[in-house]
Amino acid sequence: MNDYSLTEFLMRIAPALGRGALVSIEVALVSAVGALLIGFVTGLARLSPHWYVRLPFVAYVELFRSTSSLVQIFYFFYVLPLVGIRLDAFLTGALVLSLNFGAYVSEVVRSAVQSVNPGQWQAGVALNMERAQIFRRIILPQAFPVMLPALGNYALELLKATSLVSLITITELTFAGSQLVQFYGRPTTIYLAVFTIYLVMALPLVALNHHIERRAGGVWQGKVRHK
C-alpha cells in the first residue's frame, strides 16, 4: 500500500483532496454570506436607541463569542434534531459558522458605523434628510471602507474554521485528508498536501486583504493620498 512513488501517491490522493477542497470552499462561501447578513442586521440593531431591541442581539453576540466554536457545532448537530429541526450536516455546519462569524462581523459593523464623525449625521439632519436616507446615503458609504480590512481578515479566519465541520461528518478538505491517512498511512505527506491546499486557497484572500489595506479609507481619500 505504501510503495507508490511520491508522484504516484500524490496523483492517487489528488481527486479526494480536490473534492474536499471544493466542499471547504462551499462551506466558506455559504457561511460568509450568512455571516455578513447576520452581522449587518445584528450590528445595526445594536445601534438602536431602544434597549429592548439591543438586548437579544447583545445576548446572541456574547453567547457566540464566549463559547467554543467546536462545542457550538456539536451542540447544533446533536441538539437541533432533538427539538425537531432537521438540517443536513452541511447546513448545520454553515449555520453555526454563520452565527459564529456573524457575531464578530456585527462588532465590525457596529464600530465602523460609530467611527463616522457625528457631524455627518448632523449635516444630514440640517439638510432635512430622513433617518433612513442619512444612514443609507451618508453614514454607510463612509462606514463600509472602515469595515473592509477587518472583514477581509475574518474571511481568512472563516476559510480556516471550515475544518471544524469535519467533525460532523462533512467530507471537506481536513476530513478527506484524515480519511486518506486512515486508508494509506503516510500522514506526513498527506497532511503536507492538505496544508498546501489551504495555503493556496488562502492566497487570493491574502492578496485581496493587502489590496484593501492599501486602499484603506476609501476611494475619495485615496485620491488625495496618492497624489
Binding site: N117, G119, Q120, Q122, A123, A126, L127, I138, P141, Q142, G218, V219, W220, Q221
Partner: peptide, 13 residues
C-alpha cells in the same frame, strides 16, 4: 431652516 457648521461637515465621499 438651514445650517452651516464650524467643522463644515461636508460629505467626504
Amino acid at each position: 431652516i438651514g445650517m452651516v457648521f464650524q467643522q463644515f461637515n461636508l460629505f467626504p465621499h
